[in-house]
Structure formats: C-alpha cells, structure tokens
Amino acid sequence: MKNMIAVIFGLGVIAAPWLGFARPEDPPPFPRCLVSTWVNKTCSGTCGTFYTICPGKVMCVFAAVGDFNASPFAPAVVPCEDYTSGTGTCNATAQCTGGTYVGSTSSVTVQVQTCPLTNCP
C-alpha cells in the first residue's frame, strides 16, 4: 500500500509541470510585446510567378529575450498568403521570397495560440 502511494505521488510530481500545475512564470523584467508568428511554413506554387505560403502552426513569441508563451493551442482557420514573382525555391520546407503580396485565396486549419494583449509599445 505504501509502495502504491509512493508510486502515485512520484508520478504526480513528475507529471505536474507537464500537466500545467507548475509555478507560474516570473513576470518579464520589462514590458514585452507578444506577437504571433507562423512556424513550420509551407510553400506551394512556382517561385517566380505565383506561390502561396501557409503556416504549419501559429504561435506567440516575445519581442525580447525570454520564454515564449506556452498557452494551449487551439485549432483555427488561418488564411494563407499569395505572392507573385520572388526568388529562391518553393516547396514543403523552403519559401520563395521577394514577391509582392496579392491577397489570400486559400486557408488552412492549424493549431493557433492567441496572444494576450500586453504593453506593446
């Protein structure tokens, strides 16, 4: 019985930070912006003529040194961005660059973090 309780307690200690019961993070040393950014982007189409870049995930990053906000991700529909021209390569891992933005005609459902409003200058 004692062994069982010890095992459960040990599991709880190990899993607590992972389950979100950890001590809250220290506040940032100065006001910091949280801005959303696309990660794991994909590029489809032809670099040089017409291509579309979509996010693989949208998350928040601090505009200063520090940890990123690890608030939960939720599925959301995010519009992709269409460009014409540009240079480089366009595939699942590389993005064409330098094109001009020409709106959005497609979207993807990805995991998205909502960035809370902070004292953003």
């Binding site: 990660v39 794991n40 200063a64 990123f68 690890a70 991700f73």
Partner: peptide
C-alpha cells in the same frame, strides 16, 4: 530576441503536450 529554431522546436513539443 530569441532563436526561431528553438521556438519552433518548443512549438512542436507544446502542441504535442496539449
């Protein structure tokens, strides 16, 4: 400000944990 590669790695982990 930060290392984007590290942020992307953490994003994958955070999503998996979620």
């Amino acid at each position: 400000l930060y290392n984007r590669n590290e942020v992307e790695r953490q994003a994958v982990e955070a999503s998996w944990q979620h």
